[in-house]
């Protein structure tokens, strides 16, 4: 079988094209779209990601990397997972929310101590007071005098759903 159009190879990491016009693999997000998405959704300035490269492996999983790599790269991992694309609503990973969430200026929901404990335990909770956009948010709380992102949440119908992965959930005390 031959197929001239490059396709997404789930076994290796491919660098994202710079812009949609540079796209050769159908459905692959471009660097510019990723930067625009973080700016629109969370107010994270594109220059925060200057120096980082973005890669796709698997169906729509985008990784962020801050080192030197070949393109493509046949390795087990390259940097950390950042974002799930190739779906209607892109989804930031909870780890990306923790790593870069302190740079966000919008799409950030501040939780009180009790809400924070429920969130990190993986519980969904009613939070009708939120008047921002629905969709994926970065949940934060205050620790040691400063805001600290906990992870990603999905806000729908007056409810904040925790999307903290099972392996990262924890039963933690309410710290008043």
């Amino acid at each position: 079988m031959t197929d001239d159009a490059p396709t997404n190879d789930g076994q290796r990491f491919d660098r994202l094209p710079e812009t949609p016009d540079d796209r050769e693999v159908e459905g692959r997000a471009s660097r510019r779209e990723v930067l625009d998405w973080f700016e629109e959704r969370f107010g994270i300035e594109p220059d925060v990601f200057e120096g980082y490269s973005f890669w796709e492996k698997g169906a729509g999983k985008v990784w962020i990397f801050n080192g030197e790599a070949t393109d493509p790269s046949e390795v087990e991992a390259i940097g950390m997972t950042l974002l799930r694309t190739r779906q209607e609503h892109w989804k930031p990973t909870s780890r990306a929310a923790t790593r870069f969430g302190h740079r966000a200026t919008t799409g950030v929901i501040e939780l009180n101590p009790e809400q924070a404990s429920r969130f990190v335990a993986g519980e969904d909770q009613a939070l009708p007071a939120w008047d921002g956009d629905w969709g994926y948010l970065i949940a934060t709380h205050e620790v040691a005098g400063e805001r600290a992102p906990i992870g990603a949440g999905l806000y729908l119908y007056d409810e904040l759903r925790s999307v903290v992965p099972k392996g990262s959930r924890a039963d933690l005390p309410v710290v008043e």
Binding site: F65, S73, E76, A77, M80, T81, T98
Partner: peptide, 23 residues
């Protein structure tokens, strides 16, 4: 390979972006 998943989990939890993992 099994132990690499623990490595990946730790690197992500700590927000490391400059690591390549090989097996």
């Amino acid at each position: 390979l099994g132990r690499l998943s623990a490595l990946r989990h730790n690197a992500e939890r700590l927000g490391i972006t400059n690591a390549i993992v090989t097996n």
